[in-house]
Amino acid sequence: MTQTGTWAVKVGLAQMLKGGVIMDVVTPEQAKIAEEAGACAVMALERVPADIRRDGGVARASDPEMITGIIEAVTIPVMAKARIGHFVEAEILQALGVDYVDESEVLTPADETHHIDKNAYKVPFVCGCRNLGEALRRIGEGAAMIRTKGEAGTGDIVEAVRHMRTVQDEIRRISNMQDDELYTTAKELGAPLELVKQVKREGRLPVVNFAAGGVATPADAALMMRLGADGVFVGSGIFKSENPALFAKAIVEATTHYQDPEVLARVSRGLGGAMRGISVSSLPEKELLATRGW
């Protein structure tokens, strides 16, 4: 019996993306540059997070025509963002044939209480998290892939590092617990008990976990891999740099050779300027994107 849209094929696509770089693109031309450079997938959106941050206003899912143009331009998987809780945007993206939906805090949330019931879709979802509880809540709702939230559009890696270290630390803590301690832990994390048990059993998240939000250089990408990321999303970091094609290739090499400082030194040379960036600590609380979602 042929079965589509199963958990195995949803999680499986994320497993195939591991060790790779997923790049934000806003036009078919950028998508081609990303594919040529070795991106393992692209995220199609109207504005990169740095521009969303600058322009303000309401950020919504992208124009289907733009998404279709990008789907037709490349052979690698195409992801697209829906607003948190906006299940109709997600249905539209599924109908367009995107390969992964990112229910993303980078867009303006549509629902302040509920995330999308992602189990109800054939298309897989990726969601952001700041800690293990948030990651497991999203997985409970059906997310087949997790990424750190970081602080998108800043080019500042500090939040992504915080979120990745927090998740890894909480996983290590649970791995060392007695079984009878898991109930209270599940309550404290606000996470489904079955998933907490699974984390203890396997010593890792039940799905692939990428780094996102603030990756701007090859060294940033390698840092996140060293901290335990399975792969890297780069949003504004590529097409807001001086030489997008060079930056894209260098970040792809750095994500493969993250343990090899000699290769990292070689690929980091002569790239020109990285994206300008904003220090997260200089941002007022209400401008932070990572605090969206729960």
Binding site: M1, Q3, V9, G12, L13, I71, T75, D99
Partner: peptide
Amino acid sequence: ARNAFGRQVDSFEEN
């Protein structure tokens, strides 16, 4: 032939 069955929503399991 790459991606011969369609997009991700067409990914499947079979014996």
